[in-house]
């Protein structure tokens, strides 16, 4: 592995780079959340069919997007870590998992809250909700596997295998659930047939999505820094850090 840029992605240099980037992403996230929520609650018009309840999509939809993106990104990092034996990529994957699981849970939770006024019930075995639930199981499986393994190198690699197997399976799971859903309840309310979306709604949703990205990046960087410190606690540079802190 003679590629030079692997050296620049060493945990030590990444630690300091991430330290500089975190405040930027945090501030961006706060501002964008404030703007997005303002648009969502005050600017976007009331929906003539769904009333005020629809406003939950400003959180629900970005959270659902994030949950899927993050799983794929996690699998990619984990796969890179497995293929090239780069520790930092594996640490990134480990750091992404809890945030991804959080967004998945948020999507489910807000979906249930939205479902109550819409369908009159907290839970519907709708194809999207069911897939989201299975995605949550996949996140939980990844995290529990890594937590059960003491040796960090084995945890990284084993996690990568299960993440990659999961990512291959996600489309299969999604389409099988969708088919199962059409077979069983053809005519229930579908989320797909959303009414024509006003431009302000779309803007609000996009801003909220970018805000979620900023938040996710900030949190993932913080978590990666913690993992780096934990794994590298016996190295000279962490020793120096500790010396400075005292």
């Amino acid at each position: 592995m003679a590629i030079n840029w692997f050296k620049y992605s060493s945990p030590a240099s990444f630690y300091f780079l991430a330290g500089k980037m975190i405040p930027l992403f945090t501030i961006a996230a706060i501002i964008l959340f404030a703007v997005g929520l303002y648009i969502g609650f005050f600017v976007a018009p009331t929906d003539f069919q769904q009333g005020e309840a629809y406003r939950i999509i400003f959180i629900h939809v970005p959270a659902a997007w994030m949950s899927m993106f993050l799983y794929v990104i996690m699998a990619i990092w984990a796969g890179i870590g497995l293929a090239f034996n780069t520790r930092l990529s594996s640490m990134m994957a480990t750091a992404i998992a809890p945030t991804g699981a959080m967004f998945t849970f948020l999507a489910l939770w807000t979906g249930a809250l939205w479902g109550k006024p819409m369908w009159g019930t907290w839970w519907v075995w709708d194809a999207r909700l069911t897939s989201e639930l299975i995605l949550l199981f996949l996140y939980i499986g990844f995290m529990s596997l890594q937590a059960a393994i003491d040796d960090p190198r084995r945890a990284d690699k084993a996690g990568a295998v299960i993440a990659l197997v999961g990512v291959v399976n996600i489309p299969i799971i999604y389409f099988s659930v969708k088919w199962w859903n059409t077979l069983h309840q053809g005519a229930t309310v579908s989320v797909t047939q959303s009414p024509k979306m006003a431009a302000t709604m779309l803007t609000g949703m996009l801003i909220m999505s970018i805000a979620c990205w900023m938040y996710a990046i900030a949190v993932i960087l913080i978590r990666t820094r913690t993992i780096i410190l934990e794994r590298e606690r016996h190295t000279a540079w962490v020793g120096e850090l500790r010396g400075m802190a005292q």
Binding site: I140, S144, G166, N169, V177
Partner: peptide, 30 residues
């Protein structure tokens, strides 16, 4: 795959179900 990944782990039996059951879903459905 799940059995190989959880080899020798504490509580491997329960863990393997967490890993494997979600992957079984398409088979169950069809």
């Amino acid at each position: 795959i799940g059995a190989a990944l959880t080899l020798g782990l504490r509580g491997g039996g329960v863990l393997v179900s967490l890993l494997v059951l979600p992957l079984y879903i398409p088979i169950l459905i069809f």
